[in-house]
């Protein structure tokens, strides 16, 4: 293979899953209450994509990783302070909404347009990475539309493993039904991979990686273009929290035999 991969990871922030989320009607459609105050984390599947990208770049010489993030600039900056310590990348920031109620069609257009303008990006060497879905919209459609806009016709979704052979060909394991994997081979870049969890643990925080990334993160944030990403053609009639609470019966100080019998009766009912 001549030259390494140019890996572009699309990923942004989502509210920390531990937070209490409540919808509200914002000026331009549904939003989360206190959205700007909620602690944010990197979208988990996009996070896996980023860690896989960094690992791949490490293993294939002459590769490079960009992280394209669409989110409110101030929140992106905060997010970068934690993830920039983990792996090396060059940030491309877009200042706009990272909310789940935005129209994925418009989000894809913004991301594709931004990627298209990345200086020095060789589209023939492009591996477009992202999460198989976001933890906000949870739709699993954006990456495919970004890839379509970038004329990528080899696409994979819910990827857990990517193996690259010496000639640059890809072998991909995608999650399919009933805990199985579909194994495919692809002639090489360009391709889109929407990652599931992958196989790498979250890298530890490394201050040197952080210091290195900061040289590009801050300038990228400073020149982040504003993007009008809203609910687009969607019309929300209602957004509601489900009724969550059940009346829990707590069974204590009961012999295991009795509990087992009760559960078996329940299973058979």
């Amino acid at each position: 293979m001549s030259g390494g991969f140019h890996i572009v990871v699309c990923g942004s922030l989502v509210p920390d899953p531990l937070q209490t989320l409540e919808p509200m009607e914002g000026p331009t459609g549904p939003a989360l209450k206190n959205e700007m105050m909620l602690p944010a984390v990197l979208d988990p599947w996009a996070g896996h994509a980023l860690f896989e990208a960094a690992q791949l770049a490490k293993n294939v010489p002459d590769s490079k990783v960009w992280l394209v993030s669409l989110g409110p600039k101030a929140k992106l900056q905060q997010l970068m302070m934690s993830i920039a310590q983990k792996v090396s990348f060059e940030l491309v920031a877009i200042d706009g909404s990272a909310g789940g109620f935005t129209d994925p069609f418009d989000v894809a257009a913004t991301l594709a347009d931004t990627i298209d303008k990345i200086e020095g990006l060789d589209r023939t060497r492009l591996l477009l990475f992202g999460g198989c879905a976001s933890a906000s919209r949870d739709s699993g459609v954006t990456m495919q539309m970004v890839a379509e806009r970038l004329d990528i016709v080899d696409q994979f979704l819910a990827v857990d493993k990517l193996t690259v052979s010496s000639d640059g060909a890809l072998e991909v394991l995608e999650r399919i039904e009933a805990g199985q994997y579909q194994v495919s081979s692809c002639a090489g870049a360009p391709a889109m991979l929407g990652w599931a969890t992958g196989s790498l643990p979250e890298p530890p925080n490394n201050p040197q990686v952080g210091m290195m990334n900061m040289r590009t993160v801050m300038p990228a944030l400073q020149k982040a273009q504003a993007a009008e990403v809203g609910i687009g053609g969607l019309k929300y009639a209602a957004v509601e929290l489900p009724k969550q609470r059940r009346e829990t019966r707590v069974v204590k100080d009961t012999p295991a035999e009795e509990i087992a019998q009760e559960i078996v009766d329940w299973l058979k009912a």
Partner: peptide
């Protein structure tokens, strides 16, 4: 116990599942 299950059995799952398997 906080309204997420209909029933919570406060017990050792090793013991209970062993018994269930027997049954």
């Amino acid at each position: 116990a906080q309204g997420k299950a209909d029933v919570l059995y406060v017990a050792d799952a090793f013991e209970v599942i062993a018994k269930i398997n027997e049954l």
